[in-house]
Design a protein around this nucleic acid. Sequence first.
DNA 1: AAAGATTGCAACCGCGGGGGT
DNA 2: CACCCCCGCGGTTGCAATCTT
Length: 250
Amino acid sequence: MVSAPCCEKMGLKRGPWTAEEDMTLVAHIEQHGHSNWRVLPKQAGLLRCGKSCRLRWINYLRPDIKRGNFTSEEEEAIIQLHAMLGNRWSTIAARLPGRTDNEIKNVWHTQLKKRLQSSSKSSGQAAPKRKANKPAVAASTLEDPTSDPVSAEQSLAMSPEQSLSTSSATDYSMASSLENTGSSSSEEFQIDDSFWSETLAMSVNSSGSGMETSDTFGADSASPSSSNNEMDFWVTLFMQAGDMHSLSQI
DNA sequence: AAAGATTGCAACCGCGGGGGT
DNA sequence: CACCCCCGCGGTTGCAATCTT
């Protein structure tokens, strides 16, 4: 289905939000909630499309948003989760309480990706804070991650994404995602019974082995949302699968 | 001090999926 | 069963802030 044209292009405001608009939106949501984003701006008296309101709320106005710099733990978590999940920003965001997918996406594209690229090229050299010099500029021109054949991190990052997005839910082959983790000769990694038993066992008694994994998994499992649990399950599973293969390499 | 280059963040756009009718 | 509407996601863009020369 073709979605309705955003903002209907008719007299609806675009661009940066003003403080008044923010206040109006927050007040309206606090009072009435946001059951229907499409009618919300009309009800609230905002000259915005529902999409814009939703985005503003989710990315900026939500009370549980954690603002400020990312901690090194959070950055590490993003890197690891991205390696396992690819560009599934919303899933990654779900593992980082208070952080939005947009924010994580921005951090990834502006900082972490470059850091990984520079560290892969010259391990030990810190990435420049700002004003990239020529080498960094060259790196920044590699907008397309797939165009960098050298970066191991990139290939690690992309492969799971590709395998996840192209394989059906019942296709458990993890193809090239595991090439870097020990099974280099095998084109395709088949998950056998031992994998499942090991992984499931780990997920049951995992305690403090990974940053957000164990505690939020437990927290989320208290939630009634089964789909959320399902997603957590897969996230945990992929992360642990990665850990297992990393460990088996040692 | 000014101009140009670069970065980082907020917002927009288009697409696909899910659910209701 | 098919259609339609709405929501959410990921990619991309625009622009203000910051840094370098």
